[in-house]
Design a binder for these strands. Sequence first.
DNA 1: AAGTTCGGCAAACGACTGTTTACTGAATGG
DNA 2: CCATTCAGTAAACAGTCGTTTGCCGAACTT
Lengths: 191, 191
Amino acid sequence: MLDAGLHLLADQNLASLGVREVTREAGLSPAAFYRHFPDLAALGVALVEESLASLHVMIRSVLAEAGGAEELIDRAVEVIQQHVREHRPHVRFLARERHGGVRQVREAIDAELGRFAAEVGSALALQPVSRGWSEQDLRMLAELYVDHMVSTASALLEAQEVGPDRERRIADTARLQLRLISLGRRHWQGI
Amino acid sequence: MLDAGLHLLADQNLASLGVREVTREAGLSPAAFYRHFPDLAALGVALVEESLASLHVMIRSVLAEAGGAEELIDRAVEVIQQHVREHRPHVRFLARERHGGVRQVREAIDAELGRFAAEVGSALALQPVSRGWSEQDLRMLAELYVDHMVSTASALLEAQEVGPDRERRIADTARLQLRLISLGRRHWQGI
DNA sequence: AAGTTCGGCAAACGACTGTTTACTGAATGG
DNA sequence: CCATTCAGTAAACAGTCGTTTGCCGAACTT
């Protein structure tokens, strides 16, 4: 049933989804829905959890990596690209419902993205470049990275169905932007 | 009718909006809708145009400003804050429908944001800091700024209805992030 | 003054909606 | 082996929906 919903949400909003629509897609009777969820909103938050499980794995796989800034950037963009390619429906769902019409789902996504930022923050603190950074500075940098990741993922979502050229352009831009941020990071001391 | 739609879209998606719902809110008969729009999607793109008119004014008012990087950053964040405060429904509409379920609206928003990036790019080219920057570099910086503006506006949207403390925190973070980007910009030559 | 466009209405059409109810077979557990 | 939970069904409920049609007054054009 989750799969049926996710499939329908490819070109639809969660708020405009219907119970009958989902059960029809899943090959079940309408009443069967209520055996598993009270609401469509509940199905939404279930999809959020499903979507973010894979995201968590991805983030750790980037943060665990060691190496110079350049290799880290390349690897990060590569991982994002692959993740979007392999989890298109989930990523699209997150992008669409992050500011969507269903409060419970919005809040679930926001809370989870906040936890991501915290995780990224602790990982950044361990890097030598972050010597002397305040707690607030680390947090703001982590949020910048997470926001950038989300923007890039959204852009890739559209780019991948346009063509490989456009996808490459997005990836190149993302790498340049990360390089610029990393440059600003190395000169932060002055402030 | 546009006003009625915008009002309803405060806690709803465009895709889940109904013709009857709009006309009811506007105090008209259902048939009256079709005198003005063929679709609800058409009403959507009309709202996009309405929303982006005010945004255009805002952007120019920031870019026209002269002064040091610090003053420019403060002014930019200030202007965004005020804009979100004064145009809440429009901003929320843009954030919600940017990745929403109605293709025509999505494309209209994306096209317009692209034009914003181009405009920001030309403005950046005129600043002395951009001496020696390639066309591609300028474009990627402009996109970074636009994406950051969008993220900040979305965050402010939520923060302003939570409380002034949270709004201040978002604004502070945005300023720090812009400072870091501007720092990276000044050291870009090395690449 | 006559004709035409504009923006509005009520009514009707069939189709689709969310949800509840009572019922059923299969698996599970003691 | 019996009882119970689980996951499914069909049928029915009262609404709401999008859209078309024919009609009408006011305003504008010429």
